[in-house]
Every structure is written in structure tokens, then in C-alpha cells.
Nucleic acid binder design. Structure first.
Lengths: 121, 121
DNA sequence: GCTATATTTCCAAAATAATGGAAATATGGA
DNA sequence: TCCATATTTCCATTATTTTGGAAATATAGC
């Protein structure tokens, strides 16, 4: 992933409203949620919601799909994963303590993420 | 991790200069790098560098350590890890395709990160 | 074609963040 | 104490982002 791409993704997520939108979409999976549903859930004026959705979409974090009059938005897991990879790139090269303790990989488990332990996307 | 914390961390990283600083520090490990070294590497005026270092530090992403006149900054891997966990929280709940393919955990390997595959911090 | 719903675009005002020169602080050594 | 080095704080200027009302667009059904 290029720096420029990572930067847009981070900028996309670095806003309370957009982070909230994204986090509603992460568990929603591929079907995603309608713009209207998001607006209602977050109590946002249409113009404001639309602005942030565009922002997230341009950052590559969301996909858009139309069904009739309704636009559905879904989290783009591939982009997400690429961002995480970018951030942790070359982690622990210096191996000087502190890092090693944290870097120890957690064995993958089945599903039902507990929010405390992270598994790769 | 709380939303507020995640948000500050993301805002911290969502800037070209700060992302560059952070990524210089990720492979540098616990000893970190001196402010001066960072400034020289990135060709930044002292005041600007200092501003961004403070920003990152307040976001909890960096630790600061003084040795004589020199201040060393290091990446805080724990904070980093918490942020990644926060972002992927409840991923794949809906299990509706697209996600599953990406979520498959990668078996942990020894060290020598290839930048293409991510292991947990 | 008309009307209703869903959502976007336009745009100007308001809010927030970034920049860097100059002065201040901290430390070390003679 | 005085001087040099390392870095920070102060602050005014400039740049960027966010907000939301109103108007525009897209689609559906009659």
C-alpha cells in the first residue's frame, strides 16, 4: 500500500462521525446499510451524512450499491486490511523489548470476536 | 479502547508528516530515535517537528525519554495494537461474503516481516 | 406526466489544524 | 558562571475541513 493511500484512509477514519459510520458497517458485512439507516442511527442531517459517506468512499473504505432509490454502503475489508498491514509494516525490526511482548501472535480462533483480542481481518 | 482514544490516535496518524514520523519509529523499537534525527531525516523546522511530536505523544502513540539534552521518541506498540483491535471489532458478524475471504487468519511466522503479510503486533 | 421518497450536490459561513520564526527552557561542559 | 547544543513553547498567519439549508438528481409507482 502506498503512503498516499494509507493517509487518505486514516484521514477518512479520523473523524467522530465517519468512525461511527465505519464501525456500524464493519459488523454489517457485505449487504451493508442504507444511507437512510445510517442517518437515522446517527441522527445526521442528510447533507452532512452524504458529505462523510463520500469522504469514506473516496478514501476507499466503503463501497456503494444502489437498490431502487436506496443507496447501500458497506465496509471494504480489503482496504481495511491493507491499512493495518501498512501501519505495522516492519514492526519489531529492532527487537529491543516492549515490542516483542506485544507482537506475539494470538492463535486464530473460530468467530465471535470478543473485542478484547484482535485476529487479522 | 474508547472511541475518544481511538479517534485521537487516528487523528494523530492522519497527517503526512506524523505518519512518516511514526513509521520511522515503528521499526526503531524501544530505543526510538532522537528528535534531532527525526528532524534531519524528514527535513523539518524544529518548531514544526516539535508540534507534530507533541501531537503524536498526546495521542498516546509515542513515548518520550530524555538522555542528556536529547529527547528520544519511540512508538508505543500497545497503543498501536489497541487501535487495530478497535478498528476490527466485531468484524465479520454478518458473514455475508467478501469479509470471510479476507478475515482468514494468517498463521504466525517467526520474524522478518515481509510488508505484504501482516501478523498481529 | 405527476408526486413522493431517497439521497446528493452546491456553497458560504464557522470551526479546526498546520506552519515556522523568534524567544524561552533544559542540560552539559569548561 | 558562561557558552553551546537540543528541543520546546508562543503566537500570528495561512490553509484545510466541517456544517447544514436549499436546490438538484435519481428512482418508483400511479
Amino acid at each position: 500500500m502506498e503512503t498516499e493511500t494509507a493517509l487518505t484512509a486514516l484521514t477518512g477514519l479520523a473523524h467522530a462521525t465517519r468512525l461511527a459510520i465505519f464501525r456500524l458497517l464493519v459488523p454489517a458485512g457485505a449487504p451493508g446499510l442504507a444511507a437512510g439507516q445510517l442517518g437515522e442511527a446517527l441522527r445526521l442531517p442528510p447533507a452532512t451524512l452524504s458529505f462523510h459517506l463520500k469522504e469514506l468512499r473516496h478514501a476507499g473504505l466503503l463501497t456503494q450499491r444502489r437498490a431502487g432509490r436506496t443507496l447501500y454502503y458497506a465496509a471494504d475489508y480489503t482496504a481495511m486490511n491493507a491499512l493495518l498491514a501498512y501501519l505495522t509494516e516492519n514492526c519489531c525490526q529492532a527487537d529491543a523489548g516492549g515490542c516483542e511482548a506485544v507482537c506475539t501472535p494470538v492463535p486464530a480462533r473460530k468467530r465471535r470476536s470478543s473485542s478484547a483480542t484482535r485476529r487479522p481481518l
